[in-house]
Amino acid sequence: MNINSRCQQSTLIWGFFLLIVPSLVIAQLPSTKNLAGEWQIRNGNPPSTEAWSDTLDDSQWQSIKVPANWYSEGVDHQGVLWYRTRFTLPVLAADDMATLVFDGVDYQADIWLNNQKVGQHKGYFQRFSADITDVSRIDNVLAVRVDSPYEIPGEIWSFHKQLIKGVFNHHDTRPGGAWSERGQDANSGGIWAPVVSHISRGAVIDNVLAVPDWQRGLQHPILKVSLDYRANRNRSAVMLLRLVPYNFIGPSYQLRKNVSLVASPHNKQNLTANFLLDNPELWWPTGHGKQNLYRFEISFSDDMGIMDTAYLRTGLRKNNYRPKRK
C-alpha cells in the first residue's frame, strides 16, 4: 500500500545521480564509524611486493591524511600506493551486516580486510561499498591498493585517454591540461573522499537514484526513485521515503511502501518507487530565486524496528536547452 502525504510546507529534488550517505553514528543500529585520520602508505610500483597481510610491519611507512589526494598531502607520485589502517568494530549479532563504504578513490582500488580481498572498484567519483560481515572482527586491518596510472604521452595521453577523470572525461584540470606532456603532473590519485564502516540489521541501503519526471508540470513532479540494497535473507520490510525542507520552512512529503527484500548479502538488488509531489519548492540559479534544498531520508524497518537508514541533501530543478536562433 502506497501512502503519499504532506506534513509541513514544501519539497524539492534534483535530477542527478544521487548517492547516499549512511546515517550518523548513534548508540544503536544502524551505526557508522568514520575512518578518517592518519593512514600509512608505501610505494606499490614494481618491484614492490604485495602489502595486504595483516601481519605485515607497516610501522616505518609514511603517514598520510585520509581523505585527501596524495599530491595535496605532499606526495608526488604516479602509479600504485598501498594504504593501510586499523579500526575496531563491535561483536556482530546474528542478524547484523557490516559494510565498508568508500565515497571516492582515484582511480583503481583493490580492498583487503584481515587478509581477505573484499572488493575492487575502478573510477574517480563513484561511491562504492564492500560487504565485510563474514571477515570482520573486533580489531581489523584494512589494506587498499590504489592505482592512479601514468598514461604515456603521445601514445595514450591525451587524445587516447583511458581513465575517466578530469572534466568531461577528457581534460584533466592539472598543470598544463591535456595539451602538454606536463598535463599529468600533480597526480590526483588517492583515497580522496571519506571512508566509513557501517553496521545495519538485516539489510543495507547502498545507493539511490532519484530522477524527477516533469510530465505533470513543475507544480506536480513525480520523483522516480531507484534504490540499491542488500539483504541477508528473504524478508518483508517497510520502505519509508521522506522529503524534509533543509534550508527553508515548508511542508514535508512522505511515501511508505511495503516491500519484499531478496536474500543477497554480497550482490545489490533493486527497488523502485514513484513519489508524487504537489507544489514543491524548486531550486533556482542565483539571481532567479532561492536555492531551496531538501533532506531526502530513506529507511527500511520491520516489526523489530529500524533496519537501515540513509540520507542526502538535494534540490529539485528542471533544465531546458534552447538552441540559439540562426
Rank of each mutant, 00 (worst) to 15 (best):
I3M: 01
R6H: 12
Q9W: 01
Q9K: 15
L12S: 12
I13F: 15
I13V: 09
I20T: 14
P22F: 09
A27G: 02
Q28G: 11
S31T: 15
E38Q: 13
E38H: 13
G44S: 06
S53D: 08
Q62L: 13
Y71K: 06
Y83N: 11
A93V: 05
D95C: 00
T99N: 11
T99C: 06
V118H: 00
Q126D: 09
D131Y: 02
R137H: 08
V141W: 11
V144A: 05
D147I: 06
S148E: 11
P149L: 08
Y150L: 05
W157G: 05
V167F: 12
A178T: 04
E181I: 14
E181F: 13
G183S: 03
A186V: 06
N187L: 13
N187E: 03
S188M: 14
P194M: 04
V195K: 01
S197A: 13
V204W: 04
N207R: 08
V211F: 12
W214F: 15
G217M: 02
L218F: 02
Q219N: 14
Q219K: 12
S226N: 10
N232T: 05
A237I: 03
V238C: 00
L240G: 04
R242I: 01
L243R: 09
N247Q: 08
P251Q: 15
Q254M: 07
R256K: 14
K257Q: 11
V259M: 03
V259W: 01
K268L: 15
P280A: 03
L282D: 10
W284E: 07
R295K: 10
E297M: 09
M304A: 07
I306V: 10
R313I: 12
R313G: 12
T314H: 11
G315E: 03
L316Y: 02
L316R: 10
N319A: 14
R322W: 15
P323M: 13
